[in-house]
Design a protein around this nucleic acid. Structure first.
Length: 489
RNA sequence: GGCGGUAUCGUCUAGGGGACUAGGACACGGCCCUCUCAAGGCUGGAACACGGGUUCGAAUCCCGUUACCGCUACCA
């Protein structure tokens, strides 16, 4: 059983960005630790120097931080533990659970090819384990290079997986695997076990592509005299075509979603639901609720398919939940990038921005959509959408009457708010006999005020625009209408 | 090939022997609300991979088959 204070770790290899599958694995590790009062640690598996990069390490940290998956102790770099890995291999050599193998890579490749040609499965034949002590010593003295191989014992290896239940392997199906290379560097399975023991990891939660590594690792724990952790193997994430999620499916890095205008809380919520369900038909959750409701027994065994549409819906739900402050904080960089002003300028109009965001977020699924919709309110000049103009300003005489009339009823207002502008426009509607057809009145106005056929309610637009700009836009529209006048078809 | 894993609507899932004419959500269609677009409400179509058992009774348990996925390196 898991001890009372569980320790878990997320152990990515820094060979790319933080993949959504990795992010979900990290998320479940984190949830488990938070739920049961344990620790969540981070270990960078950078033993593969050729493929590991600093940049990738940084990208992974950033992705985790963006999601809010804070780790509790300094990051462990696997590459720094080489001496311990080596010492552990020596320990196994000394206690007889491993042996030296002098077969070269070429010989092995040859035998493997021969076996395959004969239609048989290749498995190391243990020839070096049969060398007598004298011969081994002679070869070592002669400086012959060797690897260290683990001697897999008879019998079977099984464990009670937290998500799959009991999984068992026959040891005869596991070959004597190499644990230390000729150059004295460790193979993955040794490095992982050695580090997990050193970090006192009690729950190893990882992708189910590691299931077949697990019996080997269990043997290693035993050979090193260490207590076994609890294993939990999480399913993978697939793309819409049911294949393993890859670049072909579009964005796979969590950073991509950040730039698409997804909220971290929505991303977390969505990822959590991909492979776990709290039950009771609960779907939208804050991070606190997720921790509260998390239960490893609800972990899914089956690979899930990443559905962008649902992520977007989820984001819309979270947009509705977050505070104006948080929304502004998350949207600010995108607002600046869109050219709406400097961060200082935008923050100076904080209250106004709050009210604008409040109007736009309900009609948006992502921050990017909010930014796009915000253009007519931040920019001095608006672009008239040609399609909207064509459709809504079709009747030029009526449009002119509406614009002129709006200017007339709006100008004398002493108060400029939702109720006063509504009253004024109602008056205009009556005058133009459009009370029964409000769309005929409001749509042309909407185009004049925002340049678009879609916007928040017209009175809200008037208020957020402010009297001055609203009037300027109506006048500009009138002008534009006259310029375009001589266009009889 | 060998070994391992998985199998409920298109997708995410609820379900853990009778409460199932299988529930919810996304997506899709319709209706309502409505100045547009959203949001919201209501509503429709849509699934237990197949075959055998066990049982009075199976989506739920067991065994096969099939399909898909993973591993099978001196990669991680």
């Amino acid at each position: 059983m898991a001890p009372s204070v569980p320790r878990l770790r997320f152990a990515p290899s820094p060979t790319g960005y933080l993949h959504v599958g990795g992010a979900r694995t990290a998320l479940f590790n984190w949830l488990y630790a938070r739920k049961f009062g344990g620790q969540f640690l981070l270990r960078v598996e950078d033993t593969d120097k050729a493929r590991s990069t600093e940049e990738s390490t940084r990208a992974i940290f950033e992705g985790l931080q963006w999601l809010g998956l804070e780790w509790d102790e300094p990051v462990v770099h696997q590459g720094a533990n080489l001496e311990r890995h080596r010492a552990d291999a020596q320990r196994m050599l000394a206690n007889g659970t491993a042996y030296r193998c002098f077969c070269t890579q070429e010989e092995l490749a040859q035998r493997r090819a021969a076996a395959e040609a004969a239609g048989a499965a290749f498995k190391y034949d243990r020839r070096c384990d049969r060398l007598d002590r004298v011969e081994v010593e002679r070869r070592v003295a002669a400086g012959m290079p060797f690897t260290v191989r683990f001697r897999v014992p008879e019998g079977s290896t099984s464990w009670d997986d937290l998500v799959h239940g009991t999984i068992a392997f026959l040891n005869k199906d596991i070959e004597d695997f190499i644990v230390l290379r000729t150059d004295g560097t460790p193979i993955y399975n040794l490095a992982v076990v050695s580090d997990d023991i050193a970090m006192a990891i009690t729950v190893v939660m990882r992708g189910d592509d590691h299931i077949s590594n697990t019996p080997k690792q269990i043997q290693l724990y035993r050979a090193l005299g260490a207590e076994l952790p609890v294993f939990a193997h999480l399913p993978m994430i697939h793309g819409m075509d049911g294949k393993k999620l890859s670049k072909r499916h579009g964005a796979t890095a969590v950073g991509d979603y950040q730039h698409l205008g997804i909220l971290p809380s929505a991303m977390m919520n969505f990822l959590a639901l991909l492979g776990w369900a709290p039950g009771n038909d609960i779907e939208v959750m804050s991070r606190e609720q997720m921790i509260e409701l998390f239960d490893p027994s609800g972990l899914q065994k089956r690979a899930a398919i990443f559905d962008l549409k649902k992520l977007e819906w989820m984001n819309g739900q979270h947009l509705a939940l977050i505070s104006p402050d948080e929304l502004l904080q998350r949207a600010l960089p995108a607002l600046v990038a869109a050219g709406y002003g400097s961060a200082e300028e935008i923050m100076a109009r904080r209250e106004w921005v709050f009210s604008l965001l409040e109007l736009l977020k309900v009609r948006s699924r992502t921050i990017d959509e909010i930014v796009w919709q915000a253009a007519p309110y931040f920019n001095e000049q608006i672009e008239l959408d040609a399609e909207a103009v064509r459709k809504q300003w079709k009747d030029r005489a009526l449009t002119e009457a509406i614009l002129r009339g709006a200017l007339e009823v709006l100008s004398p207002l002493t108060e400029w708010n939702l109720t006063s502008t509504e009253a004024a426009l109602n008056q205009l509607a009556a005058r133009l006999d459009l009370v029964e057809k409000p769309g005929k009145l409001y749509q042309p106005l909407r185009v004049a005020l925002t340049g678009r056929a879609v916007s928040p309610g017209i009175f809200e637009v008037l208020v957020v625009l402010g009297r001055k700009r609203a009037q300027q836009r109506l006048e500009a529209a009138l002008l534009r209408l006259r310029q375009d006048e001589p266009t009889p078809d």
